[in-house]
Design a protein around this nucleic acid. Structure first.
Length: 195
DNA sequence: TATTCGATGTGCT
DNA sequence: GCACATCGAATAC
């Protein structure tokens, strides 16, 4: 097997730590007979209680319920009437923490990603944003709450490589903007570039 | 049950 | 750089 899923306890650590460690890992999607894969290059951490930007901040609701499950499952939410975003739930059951996957570098199945994205031509535009990534990988609400060790969608080990991690303020939020919970791989062209 | 609004992307200027 | 599409969950009433 080319892609080895991460161990279940990877997701139970501190959320910021998991967000940093997810950089360079591989997101794998079994798409019918095809395999789509990409390297994670950008993440953001969302921390339950102290973080007003987190969906889990007001407490458990119907929408954010998966965030309160045990780490290691997907939390997928619908936003702005058009788009899905893909999160990885972290820490122990009842916490309400997650890591938003903001961007990836396509590795395999690029032709299929282009097909899913319609008229987008440049490879660099395929997955450099949370909603773009979901469209390219064919991720939607069907994957909400599923385990990230499942066969259809999972997170796998990455290549053994060195890179610098940049820490920055998060993007696209109206509250909790002061937290530096955004992490990305330095000089990687697939990082979403909004400032 | 009515209204508000968002962890975005796209297209036009 | 800026407006806007579009929908379900949350919140207000």
């Amino acid at each position: 097997m080319r892609f080895k899923p991460l161990p279940a306890d990877f997701y139970l650590n501190n959320t910021v730590e998991v967000a940093r460690q997810l950089l360079g890992k591989t997101i794998v999607r079994n798409y019918g007979k095809k395999i789509l894969a990409g390297k994670i290059v950008e993440t953001e951490a969302y921390i339950d209680k102290i973080d007003p930007a987190s969906h889990s901040h007001p407490g458990i609701t119907k929408r954010n319920k998966p965030m309160f499950e045990k780490g290691g499952i997907a939390y997928i939410y619908f936003i702005y009437g058009n788009y899905y975003c893909f999160n990885i739930v972290t820490e122990r059951k009842g916490k309400g923490c997650a890591v938003l996957i903001r961007a990836a570098e396509p590795i395999e199945g690029i032709e299929y990603m282009k097909k899913n994205r319609g008229k987008t031509k440049s490879v660099y535009e395929l997955t450099n944003g949370p909603a773009k990534l979901c469209l390219s990988f064919g991720i939607d609400s069907k994957f909400n709450s599923i385990s990230l060790r499942s066969s259809k969608l999972y997170i796998a080990e990455g290549k053994d490589e060195n890179f610098d991690i940049v820490t920055a303020k998060r993007v696209g939020i109206t509250r909790g903007t002061e937290f530096e919970y955004r992490f990305y791989i330095k000089n990687n062209p697939f990082v979403s570039k909004s400032k």
